[in-house]
Structures are given as C-alpha cells and as structure tokens.
Nucleic acid binder design. Structure first.
Lengths: 184, 184
DNA sequence: TTGCTCCTCACGTCACGTGAGGTGGC
DNA sequence: TTGCTCCTCACGTCACGTGAGGTGGC
C-alpha cells in the first residue's frame, strides 16, 4: 500500500492552489464529492476524485460556469458527451468575445473621460510623463499612442493643441508632436 | 409652467433605457433618490435628478461599481473631487486591462480545448467550414487564422497533418495549406 | 369598472469569503 | 496539554430579476 491513498482537504488545497471554501462549495453543490470520509468525518479524496478535479480546474480556467462543468463531468454516452462539450465550448467562446468587446468599449469610454478631465483642468502636476503613464496603463504601446495622437489630431486639432498645452510642454515640442501626429 | 416638471419611474425607464428595478435599487442604496414623491407616493424625478442620472449612466458605461459612482457623484470640494475622479478612473482602467487579459487567456485555452476535441474524434460532420466557423467565432480574422495555422505547423507539424486529415480534406489541399502555413 | 402604472416586501442569483463555535490527531 | 487541521452552520457579497399582494389615476 502506498503512503498516500487519499488526500484531505488541506492536501487538495496545496495540490491545486484553490481555496478551502471552494472545495467545500464544490462538495455542497455536488460538483465534486469526496469518495470517502474518515472516522472523524474528514473528507478523503481518492485518485479518481483528483483526476476529476483536474478536469474541473481546466474547465474553470476557460471560465466555464460550475453548473456547466457539472454537466460536462457527469457520465453519459460518449457521443452525447462530445456533442455537449463542443457546443458548450463554442458557447463559452462566443461569450468570451462578447465580454471582451464590452470591456474594449469600456476602455475607450474611460480613456475619453480621462482625456476630458485633463483638458478642463489645468491640472496641478499634470505632465507629459503622467499622461504617458496613464495611456500606458490603458494598455497602449508606442504604436498605440502614436495612433491615439493621430486620431486626436485628425478629429479635433484645436482640442489636441489645448490638451498638449495643458501638459505644460514647450511650444516647439507641441509643434513636433502635432507634426508627427499628422504625418504618421 | 411646462407640461412635464417631473418624471415618474416609467418615464425615466424610457428616457434611459434602464430597468425599473435598477431605478428602485439606486433609490434603495441612496445612489439616486428622487427629489419628490407624489400624493400617492409615486417617485418624481426632477431635472437635477435627471442630470445626475446622466452622469451615473456615463460612469456605468465605463463599468464603475455603483458604490464608486456614489462617491464620485457626491458633492465635495472641487479639488478633492477631481483627484478622486482621476484616480478612480485610472484604477478602473487597470482593472479593465486585467479583465481583458484574463479573458484573452481563457480564449486561448478554449481554442486549444476545441482543437484537441477535434483531433481526437474523427468528428462526424466536422468539415473545414465548420472549423473555420469556430475559429471565426473565436474572433480570428483571415490573418489570425493564417497565424494560427503557422503556429500549429511550427510547433507540431504532425498534429497539424492529423488535424487537417480529420477535416476530410483532399490530400493536395492539405499540402497546400501546410505549405502556405510554412511560408506565411 | 377596467386597464395601466405605481408601490412595498421578500426571496433568488453566483462562487465563494468570513467568522463562530466545536471536535479529532499527533 | 498544545497546536494544527478539520467539521458544520449561517450570514455577506453585487446589481439587480422575479414574483406576490395591494393601491392610485384616468
């Protein structure tokens, strides 16, 4: 007999880097019930349980809902199984794309709001570096920034000028940036 | 006096395209309490309320939490106001980026899982069109697909071959795709 | 009187986190 | 005996949705 036939909750926590409460919750909703209990009522997870947990973690890392994972990890005829899994995966894929699209929109709105704030205050301590940092936090790289300035210059050159002035840049630097924005 | 001095809940719903329960909820959590009540206890929103609602909807469209919006729409000294807003916006921007990063990872995992499913079943009805459709649902355009094939060919040419065979493509088409993948 | 709109509870959702209060193992 | 791990409730979270049961306005 090997030293470790079953794993306790704490050992599972270490194995999978998941929280104790998650494990208890999975038990409660019948997603993963440990196959055994000790004399003192401790949960004991068998090798089969561990393997099921691996699948659960995999599906979870793709963002599937637990209720969905439950359906997919129940045993059924192999054929239905595959069909269900594929269509479940496709559905999740569509949802992921929608969620990304929503967040992309939110990001654009957020950048616009920040831009407006910057224009209408002659912000104390607002510098070129500060603004670069904000845009960089927004996930824009060098190319993205250039693109952003170009768009800004194209759509409202006057605002762009005002914005650049609000950053306390020297006149010649403003000219340089605007030129660079126009020729991109 | 104008015909409409105040708006009822139903009129607000139409104005903002929001649900009735949301409006009631905003009242409950003191985010937006209508300034008046009618004799029959109906909520009556004034012009000021409507303007506040506009800000709320704007912030909501950037994904800010209601508790955060509540703080930002409370009156304070103008200076703290601006500081709070800017840092709140920046924080949201960071969160948005993290959320997008997570979803991007989930998308990659999902595509990999689908790919594996496709390989290990000689899928009934699995065709090139079906697979193209799945990848397209995943948000990949022509370039993205080409890139995907290239990666696949590079990392595991044998699996790529097996995969293409599983799509029931003619031999010469498989060759064409692999060549095109290698030369990209 | 008849719809229509409005009102106030109260409970459900999803995936846990956070205690409180208590027991088993070494 | 002392930590350590484990157990079972029970309530909180976030932004509403979904009834139930009842009243006001035209």
């Amino acid at each position: 007999m090997s030293a470790q036939e079953w794993l306790t909750v704490g050992e599972m926590v270490k194995q999978f880097g998941i929280s104790r409460t998650s494990l208890l919750y999975y038990d409660e909703i019948n997603l993963l019930k440990p196959s055994k209990r000790s004399a003192a009522n401790y949960r004991l997870y068998t090798d089969t349980d561990v393997k099921k947990m691996q699948r659960i973690m995999l599906f979870r890392s793709a963002g599937l809902a637990l209720e969905e994972i439950k359906k997919l990890t129940e045993r059924k005829s192999a054929n239905r199984q595959v069909q269900d899994i594929v269509s479940s995966f496709e559905h999740r894929l569509l949802t992921i794309n929608e969620e990304i699209a929503t967040l992309d929109q939110q990001r654009e709105i957020m950048i616009r709001l920040l831009k407006d704030k910057m224009i209408y205050q002659t912000a104390k301590g607002m510098t070129k570096e500060r603004w670069s940092q904000i845009l960089s936090n927004a996930g824009l790289d060098e190319k993205g920034m250039q693109n952003w300035h170009q768009q800004y210059e194209k759509q409202s050159p006057k605002e762009h000028q005002i914005f650049l002035e609000s950053l306390n840049l020297a006149e010649d630097e403003i000219k340089r940036i605007r030129l660079w924005s126009m020729c991109g």
